[in-house]
Write a protein that binds this DNA or RNA. Structure first.
Lengths: 200, 200
DNA sequence: GTCTATATCGAGATAGAC
DNA sequence: GTCTATCTCGATATAGAC
């Protein structure tokens, strides 16, 4: 089945593109890591850039799926926010790779409007998910009356900051970073974890 | 004067390395942008990596100098924090480029312990500056009793997040982002801007 | 110090056998 | 579909004139 094979190649490429950047990853690197010949990559993809595009789009799709799983499970607003932080721990590597690849992509000479739109829609969806949770929490009397959009932006931006820290600083404690941030959020929302457990 | 010439080359290289990444910037690009011949670069630097190393170190030095200017002007804790945010607006491009280059550098195949140490000391200094301001503010009765180190981490990490946002999202409003974050900080510190102006 | 000219090497990409 | 073999081109880096 050809789709499976292409998908496998994209998964291998995704990891490599995240570890190093686009230019320093060679077709040979990808072929070696995938255990195939370099020429095979050109059978499935038009060229290196085409492979990169397809890889990034596929990664965005996968993260969207994680979103939907979360949305289905979420019962009340504090849990949505809490789980959204947890997902960053669980799927940490994937999200971090995504952020890294986006930055690298944005540094490239040319950008593709289709990919640009995908990236933006990713962040829009994240923002919407969080803003809705904050709004619902306020309506339910669980949270203090903050601006839902502003707080959603804050959470989303800060999580990107944490992802970057984990790349730049070798000894960065991701779990502590997210744990500390969780406390900040509850403080901003005037919400204690005890309350959350009670409503659960 | 040879130092001036080398410095000029590093400034040109810094901009290019920040715009695109290490691998995609060619020696020819740098030479053209600087209006010199490619061979001249090898007169001043051992090779492309040596130029990169020197460039990053020089950039870190420059940011440290901005730090010190700030520290000298700062009279009381809320102003230190406020100005630290402002510096990210004023020197936005420089800091953003620095973060981008650090990320790119960390994605390279090999890393240099000297550069690693420089980057870490940069973040250490930022953290210390902020933690001291928070501690002083608490001692002066201006701020609520938070953990100075935790809050310093939060500010520092969030600013990195903002820098990343500004790269990834084209329409990102940096001023609004930092302005909103300023309010969050005052809220966490239980400090109103009105009070700050009064103590000024 | 700065340039011209050039060596060298590796990466992306393709043709064509199987 | 997957491989071997190869082409082509551009980038780093150097030798040496001025």
């Amino acid at each position: 089945m050809s789709a499976k094979r292409a998908e496998m190649l994209m998964n291998v490429a995704f990891d490599l593109f995240a570890q190093r950047n686009f230019a320093s990853v060679t077709i040979k690197d990808i072929a070696n890591a995938a255990g195939v010949n370099t020429a095979l990559i050109y059978y499935y993809f038009s060229n290196k850039e085409g492979l990169f595009r397809a890889t990034l789009e596929s990664a965005i799709d996968q993260i969207f799926k994680d979103f939907e799983t979360l949305e289905a499970n979420a019962t009340n607003p504090p849990i949505v926010i809490d789980e959204w932080l947890t997902i960053h721990l669980d799927y940490f590597e994937r999200v971090q790779k995504f952020v890294k690849i986006c930055l690298d992509y944005k540094g490239a000479a040319e950008t593709d409007p289709v990919i640009d739109a995908s990236i933006e829609s990713f962040y829009d969806k994240e923002r919407q998910l969080l803003a809705d949770a904050v709004r619902d929490g306020i309506a339910a009397g669980l949270f203090r009356e903050v601006d839902p959009n502003e707080l959603a932006d804050h959470i989303s931006t800060h999580l990107d900051g944490i992802m970057v820290r984990a790349v730049i600083l070798p000894g960065y404690d991701l779990k502590a970073g997210i744990g500390g941030f969780r406390n900040v959020i509850w403080q901003l929302l005037g919400h204690t974890p005890e309350e959350r457990d009670a409503t659960q």
